Simulated assay, not measured.
Amino acid sequence: MAVNHTEAMPPQLRAARVRKQRVIKAIILTFTLLFLFVPLVSMFVFTIRHPLSGKWSLDPWIAIFTGDGSALGADLSTLWSGLGSSMGLCVVTVVIMLLLMVPTMVIVHIRSKQLERAIEWVATLPLTIPAIVLVVGLGPIYRWLSADVLSTNPIWLCFAYVILVMPFAFRALAVGLNSIDVKTLCEASRSLGASWPRVFFRVLIPNLWQSILSASFISIAVVLGEYTVASLLGRMNLQVALYQLGQSNSQISTAMSLLALLFGVILLVALDLISDALRKSKESNES
């Protein structure tokens, strides 16, 4: 019979070991928080302290929330245009990604494990290909689309962004599919007379809500932080607008970058809260 060495220790040694582990965890956590928050605090200090005169002022933040940066010599119209483009891109990219990946992954998960591995390989390719290389390939396609089919509106960057978010979305959805018995659910539903659309929307989707939300929030974070593709293709989004704004007023640009980071943190917290709520609701229904 196996003996737990920790339980076999004398109480004094066990307590000393626990205290040592707590100290190590506290040190690691402290250094991690410092590593994460010191740059953010430095950015915030930069936004409220003028780099030349040393004067402390909240004018950059006031300019953002009032929408008027003329007093600081900054034209915020480019910022709002880039923000609007990025928000629209978030919505369109998430919709296309879900319509493309969720049905495909469900069907492949049910039918063929070999094909699922092939799709995983294709979906993870954007992680191994630098963004600038992707732009080299997408450039001629976007020139043709802009001239002959669509327009130069930044919203059409959604096709490129679907490719960029595909690896993250695939992994989030794959975790959800592997956590449930998809085949058993489908066979049971079909044996009770449910059609395939009903099985998909009434049986599978409710069990995949957490993964779908994860894929959507991660995709939004990627789209909001993307700069290379939009810049090289000559389209306006939030990051390109922040770069251009930084040429005239770096404090406002930095303040807006902090707000974008805060929005990403809020998304992650919201994802955690929603996941907990869905898990508790599922547990209460099962009990």
Rank of each mutant, 00 (worst) to 15 (best):
P140H: 09
F168A: 02
V175K: 07
G176S: 09
E116H: 05
I119D: 06
I107Y: 15
S77F: 10
F201A: 08
V199L: 08
L233S: 06
G82L: 09
A123E: 03
K280Q: 13
V175R: 11
W144Q: 01
G84L: 09
S253N: 05
P167D: 09
Q247L: 13
V45R: 09
W121A: 13
W61R: 01
F35L: 11
I110G: 03
P197F: 12
E286M: 12
T6S: 13
T93N: 10
L267G: 02
W121V: 02
W56D: 03
S287T: 11
S42M: 13
V199W: 14
K113A: 15
W209P: 00
S231Y: 12
L177N: 06
H50P: 00
F263E: 03
G88I: 02
V162M: 13
Y243L: 08
M166W: 13
I218L: 15
L72N: 03
L192H: 04
K25V: 07
P206V: 05
A255E: 03
S57C: 11
W121I: 02
L238D: 06
A270P: 01
S253D: 04
S70F: 14
L79T: 00
N153G: 07
V133D: 04
M256C: 11
F65E: 02
M87Q: 06
L238M: 05
T128I: 14
V23S: 10
M101Y: 13
E116V: 00
V18F: 15
